[in-house]
Design a protein around this nucleic acid. Structure first.
Lengths: 254, 254
DNA sequence: AAGTGGTCTAGACCACGGG
DNA sequence: CCGTGGTCTAGACCACTTC
């Protein structure tokens, strides 16, 4: 046997998806049917389907079947702020979304105080375990959960300010920080990708085999880090956009 | 049974990894041993290990065992060029790597001509199937494969130039494009993450459960796209860096 | 040779969704 | 109710690594 049987089954199913014999949204044959068709046990068929699932090609739903995933048009988030319209310049810490005119963005917010994890402590320049104010928000476009934002502030900056109180900050956190004596003068984005943890998996309602994109934005005021903002996006629905120099009108949209 | 047995086993192993009872690089008990310890069949133990593998916590090697992965220090690639040193400004299309002083970067290059795929055609503004020149390169740091770069040029730009010939271009492709009458005036980066395809999986020698980061950079000259460069990084070893404004010295490094 | 994981079988029973 | 996938078993044989 050149290749394991479960890989052969996966290859043939993948080919049927690619050549259109199995269309997006369509149901695959049931596991017993596939087992009969390929003269394999049901467990072997399930190994094949697990492969396709981990490659983000299909998703299974108990009681219903296994379905070919539909490629969705991704949301686009702007990484650069330098070219934002003046009235957006200092309004929100969130990365602006482009070309979503017809859908409204909904946000849920939670504020708490807790000890700094090692990665947060390193970026904020505080000691591990030091108290930090954490503002967590969940973002939806229409009904689709698309973004988690966790902002971390050193306690000595956020103590006694609206930052450590629940509820939105109307004027925007960047402006508030400026009023507190910490005008934002620059930031560093560190961008990576990894598999989601349990909370992220549940919030995004992800299929197995979908990674998340993580942006760690450290904001500085007079060479001092004043905030770490951690943006988490679902990898299958989001693209980050970064523009430099002169580009044609319209190419800024996904 | 509140939770399936294989998830309980995975949870307990994950806890042992997190609390240090199982250290990075250490071997897990063998599958038969785990089966005996948790009073489960070997298949159930394998389901638990598959969960941990897909979460990037462990990797298995036939004949050897299953091992806790060591977190590796990531390489960092600079997204912005605006702040690069003058002598780097137009040398290479590759994103510069920071803080890898002691390891040398090795490159393998392949040049070919082929039809434009739908995604390439859209970004280059040509028709699907039009002929494009493709320059593919594989990048290693030390022995570690860390980056794939595929550059696509419209045929009417690259035809009869060194771009369609094999071999490196010493002065750099950006400078060559400028000499051909296409000075680069700006670019758009579109950043996403997905699971690797077969070729990427093999090249990076990835463990199951590791995504790749994809950067699509479309370069423009006089509002005309002149090149699409697709950077593919392994998600477990690479962070992209993007800097804006004034930040302290040193914070540009990973 | 011995021990590891990789593949595969043929069953069983449970949980979910829809008629 | 039925058909779907989800979980689980007990065993078999194969492929790889080390000694």
């Amino acid at each position: 046997m050149a290749q394991p049987k479960y890989q052969q089954i996966a290859d043939r199913l993948r080919a049927q998806i690619n050549n259109g014999a199995l269309r997006p949204g369509e149901r695959l044959p049931s596991e017993p049917d596939l087992a009969a068709e390929y003269d394999a046990s049901r467990n072997t068929v399930r190994l094949a389907i697990a492969l396709l699932t981990n490659q983000g090609l299909v998703a299974t739903h108990q009681g219903l079947g296994t379905f070919v995933l539909r490629p969705a048009r991704p949301f686009t988030a702007l990484l650069s702020r330098v070219q934002a319209a003046p009235h957006e310049q200092h309004v929100s810490a969130a990365l602006p979304v482009v070309s979503q005119a017809d859908e409204s963005e909904m946000v849920r917010l939670l504020v708490e105080t807790g000890p700094a994890s090692p990665s947060v402590a390193e970026k904020l320049g505080v000691a591990e375990g030091d108290s930090v104010v954490i503002r967590r928000s969940q973002h939806f476009i229409g009904e689709v959960p698309w973004q988690l934002i966790n902002s971390y502030y050193p306690s000595d900056i956020a103590k006694g300010t609206p930052l450590e109180q629940a509820g939105p900050i109307d004027a925007g956190t960047i402006e508030l920080l400026a009023k507190l004596g910490y005008p934002q003068q620059g930031f560093v984005d560190e961008i990576g990708a990894r598999m989601p943890n349990g909370r992220e998996f549940d919030f995004f309602k992800l299929a197995s085999g979908t990674p998340v994109i993580v942006v760690n934005r450290t904001s500085y005021s007079s060479d001092q880090p004043v905030r770490l903002t951690r943006y988490i996006y679902r990898g299958d629905r989001v693209r980050l956009l970064h523009v430099e120099g002169n580009v044609p009108e319209g190419s800024r949209n996904g």
